[in-house]
Simulated scan of single mutants.
Amino acid sequence: MDKRNTNKRVGFYLILIVLMTAVLATACGRQDEQAEPGVQAEASKQAESAAPSAEVDPAPSTEAASEAPGGEARSYTHEFGTMEVTGAPERIVGVYLDDFLLALGVKPLTQTMYGTRPLPYLQDRVGDLPAISTGSINLELILQEKPELILLAYPAYAQEGRYEQFAKIAPTYVFSGEDGWKDTLKKVADVIGRPEQAEAWLNDYVGKAAEARESLKQVLGDETVMFIRFTRAERIQIYGGPSNFSADVLYGDLGLQPSKLIKEFAWGEDNSAPLISAEMIPDFDADHIFITYDKPGEDDAKEFKSHPLWKNVPAVQKGNLHEVEMFHWMNDGPIANSIKVDDVLKALLK
């Protein structure tokens, strides 16, 4: 092939990618860093929304991957089309699926940012990987990483013609965002050719949760628990269940008892997290309260923490107000949920 023609073609594709990136940035602008991270389940609605010690096995070697089952192409159909993948690809971009890939022993090519902030609970695993913000997904960056496979956690990332842009770079699979984290882990594992890793992780997690559940039952008995999130002054939320991504661990996996307030205001199948005001603090009736702050250093968060109404809350009087870190409590990945179990045990088994 004529070298000049090759250069022209390379130049054409670079220009095309730049244009595509600009379009994507504009279209995704509504998912800016002020969007509420829920970080998996809430984003799926586009509404705001470890095994024993959350350890992750190192990524499998190239030799192990070549021996993985599924040498023939596997076809997967999703909302935006059909794609094929062969074997167990290692070079994977997973937009908001970092947690799942790492749990399966795969270090992704990029890390997903929440706005401009990385996910701190994954930093010891991802290090300084190139960063992707869901508010403006950099297609040129993804192209430079030469992925074999692209996974998108939510349809929002693929809408308005963006799926076709991803698919030109590598085979792309779009998740519905509506499945529970365990089913999502199984699907990710199936698509990337590592079903055994998913089964092993889930078996470890189920065993860990069952052991924790029994220990908590012996210590707590019928004592109740609630979970609150402070985003900003006008966005204080209480989380219930049984299908909500944080309450899922508390009331499902760990078998803890929701308080009367939770059952009355936040118990439902729609993953709702009702907004409340600070005036409801005296109604916080749980024996133990878990609370997270999106930005604990902000003035309104400090004001909420020091609100005089807290002093009359029974859980506070007993020293049972437990502050937890937002990024993994508002995330529904397998590693995040395993760390939640660790947090609960640390707080309640004093």
Rank of each mutant, 00 (worst) to 15 (best):
Y163H: 14
V324K: 01
L250Y: 13
E298R: 07
K146G: 00
G11D: 06
L24E: 05
Q317F: 03
M83C: 07
A88C: 06
I281F: 09
P282T: 09
P69G: 02
V206S: 10
L220K: 01
L122F: 03
T110V: 14
A65Q: 10
F265Q: 15
Q317V: 10
L345S: 05
L122I: 07
L185F: 04
D299E: 12
I150D: 05
I281Y: 11
M83N: 02
A103F: 08
D183M: 06
K350E: 09
S49M: 05
E84I: 00
H288L: 03
F100N: 12
G71P: 00
W329V: 10
R162W: 08
V249D: 11
P120T: 13
A156L: 11
A200W: 01
N320E: 09
M330I: 07
E303P: 00
D300P: 03
Y239M: 06
I262W: 05
N203Q: 15
D222V: 00
V341I: 15
T292A: 13
F284I: 11
D190C: 05
K182W: 05
G71I: 06
W310S: 02
K302G: 01
V85R: 00
D299T: 12
Q165Y: 10
E164N: 10
A68N: 10
T110S: 12
L345N: 13
V341M: 06
K168F: 10
A212P: 13
L122T: 05
G255N: 11
E196Q: 15
L254H: 06
A167T: 04
E72A: 11
E298T: 07
D248M: 05
D57N: 12
A247P: 02
R91D: 14
V188A: 03
G207L: 02
W329C: 08
V324G: 01
I262T: 15
K263G: 02
S243C: 02
S49P: 10
P308A: 04
E33G: 13
F12D: 15
A198V: 09
L102N: 09
N203Y: 07
I281R: 11
Y205V: 03
I281V: 14
A170C: 02
D294Y: 01
V95M: 04
R4F: 05
E140N: 12
V249H: 11
K187H: 07
V95T: 03
V93G: 10
E55T: 13
V225E: 04
G11M: 09
K350H: 05
D124C: 00
D179I: 01
